[in-house]
Design a protein around this nucleic acid. Structure first.
Length: 178
DNA sequence: GCCTGGATTGTCT
DNA sequence: GACAATCCAGGCA
């Protein structure tokens, strides 16, 4: 199992995003396989970086391969990986993973939720992995454990935004047949 | 300084 | 399927 080097993340977010599918995201005891992501670039009106560097989004302008965690809607955290060169404001939002290890911990942190709801949304996976503002700016732990990205990832419009909604920058691993 | 709206989720009907 | 919850960053006066 090979840990992804900073060079992996030092590319355009739209290139890194589909390449992250089926990779292994690790935080402490917990690991999950990345199945859905969204790319955010500096020329994207929906990106936090669109209006330039601020204290909040500094991590996305920093070196690639770091965690950018932000707080939104007064109650939720979302997790991004910084991409592009140092000084470039881009990132990839982790939207969903499937739990691999540390599932017990995730169940504890998401008390009362069925297993399928542990990590199937951006704020949910942040909670399941116990990621909050203290994790902001930490180096990201992502591994290639031999599972290649899907040959034909589903590409579609992004979810939950009001600007540039039509930009097809959401990438998803095709769901298993029911 | 004040005001607005958000990269969402859970709960209720 | 629809809406309320809830706080802070960014924009403008």
């Amino acid at each position: 199992m090979r840990r992804l080097a900073p060079e992996f993340f030092a590319r355009d977010a739209t290139v890194v995003a589909p390449d992250l599918l089926n990779k292994r995201f690790v935080v402490g005891e917990c690991a999950g396989r990345i199945i859905e992501v969204e790319a955010y670039t500096s020329d994207d009106p929906a990106s936090h970086c669109f209006n330039g560097r601020t204290a909040r989004n500094a991590v996305m302008f920093g070196p690639p391969g770091h965690l950018y965690v932000y707080f939104t809607y007064g109650m939720h955290y979302c997790v991004n990986l910084s991409t592009g060169a140092d000084g470039d404001g881009q990132g990839v939002l982790l939207r969903a993973v499937t739990p691999l290890t540390g599932v017990e911990l995730m169940r504890l942190r998401r008390r009362g939720r069925p297993d399928r709801s542990l990590t199937d949304g951006p704020a949910k996976l942040a909670q399941a992995f116990a990621l909050d503002l203290t994790a902001n700016g930490e180096p990201a732990e992502v591994y290639d454990d031999g599972v290649p990205p899907p040959p034909a990832p589903l590409v579609g419009p992004r979810i939950g935004i009001t600007k540039a909604v039509e930009w097809p920058r959401r990438f998803r691993v095709p769901p298993p047949p029911e």
